[in-house]
């Protein structure tokens, strides 16, 4: 650094950096762990909340959105390819570690749900992280988990009577909780200054 002057770049390049810094890895992991704890708690209230919805069982899918949050939130916050899968898979693993009613298969769910969110970010080529991308990632994440759910657990049930409404409710819930609430959460975090090492904490979309 002898005699050298480093000036802050006025116009930062818009092309995203694809390599993962340590802070990207650890922050994504922390998001995964934090949502793992949320999953654990949500698993416990799920039964209670789902009970009054039993008059129309597919309606319980409106509670699914919470499980799709880590992938979408991590993607919006860290903005790296793979962040959604890493955070979502880890969240599932942590909920398993704390005791999950779904067993080892939950890891598969975590990865698939993360991949679902990832598709949303891939479709916008990891370049925009505003409302459009948040909603899109919410939709793709919701679709991923409802396909998995309806073919694994509810394969016997009717297509129009169960599978379609289940998918619709899951996607709606995912858009609302993972997409809209997720982006609001990232922006609220940015306002606290906690995201100063991330592009999502510096720019205003």
């Amino acid at each position: 650094m002898t005699g050298e002057v480093t000036r802050p770049t006025a116009a930062r390049s818009t092309a995203p950096r694809r390599t993962w810094r340590t802070v990207d890895i650890v922050t994504t992991a922390v998001l995964g762990v934090a949502f793992g704890v949320v999953f654990w708690a949500w698993n416990l209230v799920f039964g209670v909340l789902a009970a009054p919805l039993d008059f129309f069982p597919p309606l319980s899918a409106v509670l699914n959105g919470v499980y799709l949050m880590p992938g979408v939130v991590a993607g919006l916050l860290v903005r790296k390819p793979g962040a959604a899968v890493f955070a979502s898979g880890l969240a599932a693993a942590v909920s398993l570690l704390l005791g999950s009613p779904y067993g080892g298969i939950i890891i598969v769910y975590g990865l698939v749900q993360g991949l679902g969110g990832e598709i949303g970010f891939l479709l916008t080529r990891y370049r925009s992280f505003g409302w459009g991308t948040a909603v899109l990632a919410g939709v793709t994440a919701g679709l991923s988990t409802s396909i998995l759910d309806t073919s694994l657990y509810y394969a016997d049930l009717g297509f129009w009577a169960y599978k379609v409404p289940y998918t619709v409710f899951t996607v709606l819930s995912s858009v609302l909780l993972a997409g809209v609430v997720g982006l609001l959460l990232v922006r609220a975090l940015a306002r606290t200054g906690a995201l100063s090492s991330f592009a999502s904490g510096r720019s205003r979309v």
Binding site: M1, T2, G3, V5, P8, T9, R12
Partner: peptide
């Protein structure tokens, strides 16, 4: 120091 967030002049080794 993040080189994007600070300007450094002089010598430091």
């Amino acid at each position: 120091l993040d080189p994007e967030a600070a300007e450094v002049t002089g010598e430091l080794t």
